[in-house]
Design a protein around this nucleic acid. Structure first.
Lengths: 143, 143
DNA sequence: GCCGTATACTTGAGTACGCAAGCAACTCTA
DNA sequence: TAGAGTTGCTTGCGTACTCAAGTATACGGC
């Protein structure tokens, strides 16, 4: 547990940068990223909660915020009236692009400050096995 | 970032177990553990916040709870009137001992579920370099 | 076609933090 | 020894979650 504790500090640091420069939290950012990578730029709330490792209610409120900012929009599902998709708006895509540059650089810096390329690869391979770690990692420089 | 996301899930799982069985959060547990390892079973709030990677206010409120339960007590510092030590009470030590058995087993299980001994060692060595990761790890089976 | 169960989502209440601001005690400078 | 800065800690307020409970829709068996 203690070994994983640095995570909180790292995350906070990245979140603060993202917040200050683009008005996004890490979860906001990753939501936009997930949507940008998804088919039709849309995802069900359930799938987002899986990906972000949040509960359904967490996702509801996260999206509330992003919807209020106009970065994502709701969209109903024609085949299942229970689901509402979150879709990336143009504003959302734009914000993501803006944020990506500095965020990716920040993540890279954080890790390269401490690890060699080889070590990073090892870390990535191992951490991938923790519960909830997703597989692909494009757009986030393998971190 | 995504690679570290499993951390949240793992932590939640451990915290839930600890909570259900012993009425402690992970931070409660680690506070007791830190005190038990400290000289005279006492630590300054500042040192706890460093070790737990919390802000000073977080520590204040964390200790509020533990003090209310009688697991730690306040103690003034003779040489510096600003500092108040947190000291482990007998009840606190007892609770820690109780909780340790199942918690250590749970942590062990969580990691061994996913990693070999060798991989664990590698992981430990690498993660130790993240900001805020402490060095020694006795009493927590290297996780 | 109806009933039980499962799924998708929202809402209310509670919690564990962080940040900013404040106070008191210490230390350094001159 | 007076001020200026620093350090240790607490408090008020905001936020991002969680869990439990509720609603609405879907779907399988009979």
């Amino acid at each position: 547990m203690r070994l994983l504790r640095g995570h909180a500090a790292a995350r906070r640091r990245l979140s603060a940068e993202l917040q200050a420069e683009h008005g996004l939290t890490v979860n906001d950012y990753e939501t936009l990223l997930a949507l940008s990578q998804a088919k039709d730029n849309a995802l069900r709330r359930v799938d987002l909660s899986e990906r972000l490792q949040l509960t359904a209610s967490g996702v509801t409120r996260l999206l509330d915020g992003l919807e209020a900012c106009g970065l994502v929009a709701k969209q109903t599902c024609s085949s299942d009236a229970r689901v509402t998709y979150a879709v990336l708006t143009d504003a959302g895509r734009e914000r993501l692009t803006d944020a990506s540059r500095s965020h990716i650089a920040a993540v890279k810096a954080l890790f390269e400050e401490r690890y060699s390329d080889e070590e990073l690869a090892t870390l990535a391979a191992l951490l991938q096995r923790l519960p909830g770690a997703a597989s692909a990692d494009a757009g986030e420089c393998a971190a």
